[in-house]
């Protein structure tokens, strides 16, 4: 299902990696922010013919405090829970204005939202937009909590993580529910393209953006976005941690094109989940003997998910 104006693109490689970032320096993201880094990569791959709808959250706040904007793209922020709907409106306007000859080009719509704005408060709006089939790319930058308001738990917060509203206490050792798998929820919408990406694998990430942009209809990409403030880690480890997330299979890299699953990266050596958890203060309490069952349970879950994903990938490959 290619776009009506097919973008005949040259696949991004290490040699031709696009360099022009559509977010300027001088933004107010924390030092070492993994989200803005991932978002910058998205804009490099997506190019200039874009309109952005940004949900309320860190990325909206740090890029737009009046009177300056970091955005070099047309950008609209409305509220927290409605990026999907706002994007729908922009896309519909583009369609009709183009059809009526009022605009010459049809810019692509990209929505940016955090995991809270995507998997929790904005799920309805996103689900509606995907179901209606708007031609747009929705990017979730998933840092696993409400970081903008001070690291409160979200539906996407991983099992066992200590947050300001799921604190690790003597009775309850952190968040006692598993992470809401928003990528799979989006896949269940049977949209033409769903993917998971990580800034540590920047070529993979940019190629997914490129591919998504070449496909007509609704697309969803979930990007792991380390936040050292919320993850209680160091300011220099956004890439290192997102790489560990991929290599422990906590955050496998895959895409689902028209329902066919393809793993886009298989770790050379699948590392134990502990390697991803240990550098993060939000999981520190899990390394106490009484809480180790949480790590074990998480590992079991990740192993099972990984096997299932590999099976799906193999099935997808067999279909081709």
């Amino acid at each position: 299902m290619l776009r009506d104006i097919t973008i005949d693109y040259e696949k991004i490689t290490a040699k031709n990696t696009p360099k022009e970032c559509m977010i300027s320096s001088g933004h107010r993201a924390c030092q070492g922010c993994g989200e803005i880094l991932a978002m910058g990569m998205v804009t490099k791959a997506a190019g200039k013919d874009i309109i952005v709808a940004n949900a309320t959250g860190c990325m909206e706040i740090v890029t737009s405090p009046f009177p300056q904007t970091a955005w070099k793209l047309p950008w609209l922020h409305v509220a927290f829970e409605n990026a999907g709907a706002v994007g729908s409106g922009i896309e519909a306007a583009i369609k009709v204005l183009h059809r009526q000859g009022k605009i010459k080009k049809k810019p692509h719509v990209i929505c940016f939202a955090g995991d809270g704005a995507t998997a929790d408060i904005g799920l309805q709006s996103l689900s509606g937009a995907m179901e209606r089939g708007h031609d747009m790319l929705y990017i979730c930058y998933d840092n696993g909590a409400y970081m903008n308001t001070g690291t409160q738990r979200s539906g996407a917060t991983p099992f066992g993580a200590s947050t300001t509203t799921s604190p690790a206490g003597s009775s309850v050792p952190g968040k006692m529910q598993h992470r809401k798998d928003i990528t799979r929820i989006m896949a269940a919408h049977n949209i033409p393209y769903v993917a998971q990406a990580s800034p540590s694998h920047h070529l993979d990430l940019m190629r997914k953006i490129q591919k998504a942009m070449s496909i007509s209809g609704p697309k969803f990409i979930n990007i792991l976005s380390p936040c050292h403030r919320g993850w209680r880690s160091k300011s220099d480890d956004a890439i290192a941690l997102s790489r560990l997330a991929v290599n422990t299979c906590y955050w496998p890299l895959f895409e689902m094109e028209n329902g066919k699953t393809r793993l886009t990266h298989t770790p050379k050596e699948k590392l134990p989940l502990k390697d991803f958890l240990r550098p993060q203060g939000r999981f520190a309490h899990l390394f106490r003997p009484e809480n180790e069952w949480i790590i074990e349970q998480s590992q079991t879950q990740i192993d099972a998910d990984w096997v299932a994903l590999q099976d799906k990938g193999a099935a997808g490959a067999a279909l081709e």
Partner: peptide, 15 residues
């Protein structure tokens, strides 16, 4: 609507 008309003007802010 208090829009910001100068794209990339955050570059003025030296962080």
């Amino acid at each position: 609507g208090a829009a910001i008309l100068a794209p990339g003007s955050a570059a003025k802010l030296k962080t």
